Computed example of a mutant assay.
Amino acid sequence: MREIESLKLRWKRNEVTLGAWCFLPDSLSAEIVAHSGYDWALVDMQHGCMGYETTVEMIRSIELASIVPAVRIPWNEPGIIGRMLDAGAMAIVAPMIQNAEDCRQLVHACRYPPVGGRSLGPIRVGAHQGLGYVTTANDKISVIPMIETIEALEAVEEIAAVPGVDALFVGPFDLSMALGLPPGDNDGEPAFDAAIKRVNDAAKANGLATAVMSTDKLAPLRASQGFQMISVMNDSVSLGMAARASLETARESIVENKKDA
């Protein structure tokens, strides 16, 4: 397995990185997704159905494809952040960051001293990467607060200026609801478009990347807006769409065959 290059190194080269979102609690499905050619795959512990042990196995499966394993933690809490990093996560996406102080706490939990307060004990990732892990972890791990509330949007310039942040992640569904819009991608709505621009402007002013949960069809627009970390599929939706499409094809074929009989 080749060494996995960090997302923030690729962002510094102005690359757009495309990824997959994993809601399903299964290491095999994560492995299949990871080997499909994505730049990263994210295990969603906030809204997905997996617990700690399953997440560890999913991180391992993603690593087998030599792409970045990312985790959206359930909450901005040092204990789970440390456990996910010790398991091998190379990017931490933190939901419901409201202000710069929340963001400072996130960075502190993600970084080893002297720049942070992460406890030393990389049992699983150390076994995988060796003793060199500890000396390089601060440089390789991407810290990514989510901007998805009015409070966060109003404080986005201060959040972006927190030392140690690598990208700002827009949660379009929650942010849309906070703006009084239907949950979803509300491109063309002035408030939504202004929010997207404000986040990207704040990130650019501080040398950060921006990230977003999106779709394959919207990816070109998001890239043109400046996003460099874009999810283009999620496993639960893709499985449902494929299942319905297969069933529809089979039923239509059966009907056509009966007509020709």
Rank of each mutant, 00 (worst) to 15 (best):
A160P: 04
P145C: 03
T249S: 14
S176T: 08
G19M: 03
L153N: 05
E256I: 13
M233V: 15
D26G: 09
I196H: 05
D174Y: 08
H47K: 13
V115L: 08
P122N: 13
A20S: 10
M58T: 12
I67G: 00
K259F: 05
V68Y: 02
V16W: 03
P69H: 01
I159C: 07
A245I: 01
M177T: 14
V170S: 03
A167W: 05
A178N: 09
A203G: 05
L131F: 14
G116S: 04
V162K: 01
T149W: 02
A243M: 12
R111Y: 06
M229S: 12
I62A: 08
A261Y: 13
I67K: 02
D166W: 06
A152L: 09
F173M: 14
I254D: 12
I147M: 02
A160H: 01
N257E: 15
S214T: 04
G116I: 00
P95D: 00
I80A: 01
Q129M: 12
M213F: 15
I196E: 10
A65P: 03
I150W: 06
G82K: 10
C22R: 13
E15T: 13
A167F: 04
L247T: 15
G240F: 12
I62H: 10
Y38E: 07
A223E: 09
M241A: 14
L179F: 08
E157F: 00
T17K: 04
R244N: 11
R124L: 12
Y112M: 10
I141Q: 02
S29H: 10
I141T: 06
M96W: 10
S176N: 08
L239K: 03
G51Q: 05
D187I: 13
E53P: 04
A100S: 08
S142R: 04
